[in-house]
Amino acid sequence: MKKSIIGCAVLAAASAANAQSSVNLYGRIDNGVQYETGLPTGNRFSTQSGDWGCSWFGLEGTEELGAGNRMIFKLEGQINTMTGALSGNLFGRHATIGIDNDRFGTFKIGNIGAGELSQDSWNVDPQFMQRYAISTLVRARNWASASNGFEYQTPNWGGLMFKGQYDVTNNTSWNRATTATGQGRTDGIEASYTFGSGHVRVIYDEVRGADGTFNDVYAHSRSLLAGGTYVLGPVRLYGGYQHLSAPNATNASVGVTNASQPAGVSAPTSVDHEWIGAVWQVNATAALTTGVFHANANHGNGNATLYTVGGTYNLSKRTFLYAEAGYVHNSSTSNISLSNGPYGNNNFDAATNTASNSNPNYGHSQAGVFTGIMTQF
């Protein structure tokens, strides 16, 4: 009888422990097709994984620690679901552990990855950071990532929240990367406020180059972004502004030569980026999106405007169809592409019909359309 009582007590304790912790497998798959014109090698029809959003899988869990504290963890990796290949490291998007408390906020440590603050700009993007969206005219600067980091987020104080990050290099030189091709120290702070029908968000973040300086406005720079949304019936309006600064940028630091650039053009040290847009929730299953984005770069790099229109159609709570069309118009000394191509000439070789990137020729435009299906689990 005594052994039976002890056995029941052990089982009860185990059941209680299991009830206080959880581990969830989650993910999403995005596959579709796209057609783009104006590439240096011609027009292209292709399959794609992630035009609406990246495909990923992950594990996340919690454990009750008592006194209102919870241990939390997250492991997340990105995949190309057209080929089955990993996109980067196994858990390159997130690999963090932390403590969460409703009263005191949330602290995390580890690979912040895709949680770098600039990626929160999707909240003020009418195209939700699709392929043709807020990151296009800044050549993917809003897709920054960070490792070896710390993050703290406050509780929600009546709609007001703050978040801060600090990511070190693990190098003896505080700001420099451990390798010549790596990324230096990153840090940032974010504030968001939701009130009635409105929402505003301000993000300041710094991403340094391998040498510890701000040497590439589209990759290693200071970014100040402010944007907001406002709901009017079935329509949500969007607007925002972003300023990028890289005072240490030179042609050498961004990997171009004077001969490859148009006359009077050199590596930009600042970019001003503005946008407006709207999302119309037509009914419970369908939504239409539209946005206009404009960017100006200094040092003779001209300006570009991106026009977009898209839509989604829900097949269920977890699965939807999507489509978007985009057109980017470049001034005579700009060559921004629809695919977040790097800064510089495409180095097109007519003899071999090859180019080093998908940027159009200077002053030329690009147009594209894609459609696909997204499911989440």
Score class of each variant (00 low, 15 high):
K3Y: 09
Q261G: 04
D102Y: 00
Q127H: 13
A350K: 14
I112F: 02
I97P: 01
V10Q: 10
L86G: 05
S253R: 09
D51R: 13
T83S: 14
F150T: 04
G66A: 09
G53C: 01
A284K: 10
A13Y: 11
S4R: 08
A246V: 11
V328Q: 02
E64I: 08
S21K: 08
E64R: 14
V254Y: 09
F128C: 10
D272R: 13
N175K: 04
S270F: 01
N31Q: 12
S55H: 03
Q153V: 07
A114R: 01
S192Y: 12
V235C: 10
S223H: 11
V33H: 01
R103K: 12
A210I: 07
Y26M: 09
R208Y: 00
A323K: 11
A17C: 12
G264Y: 05
F195P: 12
R222E: 05
A17R: 13
D187V: 02
K163F: 01
F214S: 11
R176E: 13
T178C: 07
M1Q: 14
K163L: 06
Y218H: 09
E206C: 12
D30C: 06
Q376L: 12
A284N: 13
I99R: 07
S55D: 01
A284I: 00
V231C: 06
T37Q: 10
V279P: 06
G88M: 00
N353R: 10
M1P: 14
P268Y: 03
S260M: 04
D272V: 05
S270W: 01
I29A: 12
F293W: 15
T136P: 06
G110D: 02
G264T: 05
W122L: 11
T229W: 06
V254I: 14
F377P: 02
A278C: 03
R103N: 15
L25K: 10
G302D: 08
G255K: 00
S87P: 03
T308E: 07
A85Q: 14
G291N: 02
S332T: 13
S223V: 07
H273S: 12
Q34H: 05
G277M: 00
A177Q: 06
Q376M: 10
G291K: 08
G88S: 02
S339I: 10
H329E: 08
Q153A: 06
S337F: 07
T83N: 11
S46N: 06
N301S: 02
Y204S: 05
W143L: 13
T178E: 13
G363L: 03
V33E: 05
I5T: 15
M82G: 12
V271T: 10
T354E: 03
G368T: 00
A355N: 07
